[in-house]
Write a protein that binds this DNA or RNA. Structure first.
Lengths: 201, 201
DNA sequence: CCGGTTGGTTAATGGTGGTTAACCAGACGG
DNA sequence: CCGTCTGGTTAACCACCATTAACCAACCGG
């Protein structure tokens, strides 16, 4: 399990994520990963239990980052269901918890596209245990979003709200498929589209 | 190349797409594909030149379907850039070419999620030639969308319009990730979100 | 009745890939 | 000085896999 995160482990996770995103889990050999970090082949087994374990660590890391970030952004507004004022969702500022989540997720997708890609397409290659752990965090992340969306969309039942949230993820995660415009323009475009999609006027 | 489409070939393509979508191109063996259609292993070589060829046929088939459908929907309005009235984009009816494209793509994604998934994530596993052919059709498809979007969004430069279109694809293609609500509800939800995202009021 | 095409089969082959084994250089506390 | 982690190395193993070869039953036009 080796739960500690040495810098070497982080480096491996980072480059492995890049490779997995580009060629898929089964399209990458441990030799490839080793070569990409400067060591060769079986040396990886000094840091991870195996190839699957590398993927598991990647996904756990990613889902953890997303969930923690989202929880920080919406801290203070969670649980209380008394406030029905949509403008007061989240902290006291003018922006709502939902807009903060959108900006956060957009920035994450723009800065770490590899993690986004791997997280959304390679979870099937995990073992039972790791998959459950990742799935748990992903569901919790969706739950945070759904709670933030609820006050804006009282018309949506919880299942539909969850589907809407996942559709918004699909929109924001489309960033790896097209990088032909500047990052800031893309950011503004995605944020605008996500807000319109989730809270139509 | 075997350009003809016998029913057996179509069956293979269909089940192969399902497998590729579930486990990824490299995660599926030719034995798996054969077993899934009731024959075993090398018998596939009587219908296709190899594993890559099966994937190529899948992707070509999918991109062809999308492009042809889109062209039919927008026939008559293509090319003419004189009409500036947004309500007249496309045919004479009240719906615009864009709304028709959205409904078409949504239905495709809902009925053929495997093709959608494979098309968006496995094009890197193709050979040079097949990849170029698929890419060409995908770009043409995006182009049809962009032309349909243009009258609604004169504020977007072409590159941004293309990015917006691809973001909309991401939204609509999110359907394989969550199938917890009824198909018609999902359809309405996705169409509504896509329209709001592309043409905010 | 027959020759060939169609669509299968199983066996063989060559390559690749994950994992383990055995070994080794260096850092480092005592 | 010395034992012991730590993080590497290369060689070996075995499984799996795409592809080819050789062979065969069934259909079918003439």
């Amino acid at each position: 399990m080796t739960p500690v995160q040495t810098p070497r482990r982080l480096q491996i996770l980072d480059t492995a994520a890049e490779l997995f995103a580009a060629r898929g889990f089964h399209g990458v050999s441990v030799g490839d990963i080793g070569a990409a970090v400067g060591i060769s082949g079986p040396a990886l087994y000094k840091h991870f239990a195996g190839k699957q374990d590398i993927l598991g660590a990647c996904l756990l890391h990613a889902s953890e980052q997303l969930l923690e970030g989202a929880r920080e952004l919406t801290a203070g507004a969670a649980g209380r269901s008394g406030s029905n004022d949509p403008d007061d969702t989240g902290k006291g500022s003018g922006d709502t918890a939902l807009t903060r989540l959108i900006a956060f997720h957009t920035d994450f997708a723009l800065t770490q596209p590899a993690l986004i890609v791997v997280q959304e397409r390679e979870w099937g290659a995990l073992g039972e245990a790791a998959r459950a752990a990742v799935r748990e965090r992903q569901l919790a992340y969706i739950e945070v979003w759904t709670r933030a969306l609820a006050p804006h969309r009282p018309d949506l039942a919880p299942p539909e709200a969850r589907a809407a949230v996942q559709a918004a993820f699909g929109l924001l995660n489309s960033t790896p498929h097209s990088a032909r415009i500047s990052r800031t323009t893309m950011r503004d475009l995605l944020i605008g589209m996500a807000e319109s999609a989730l809270t139509p006027t």
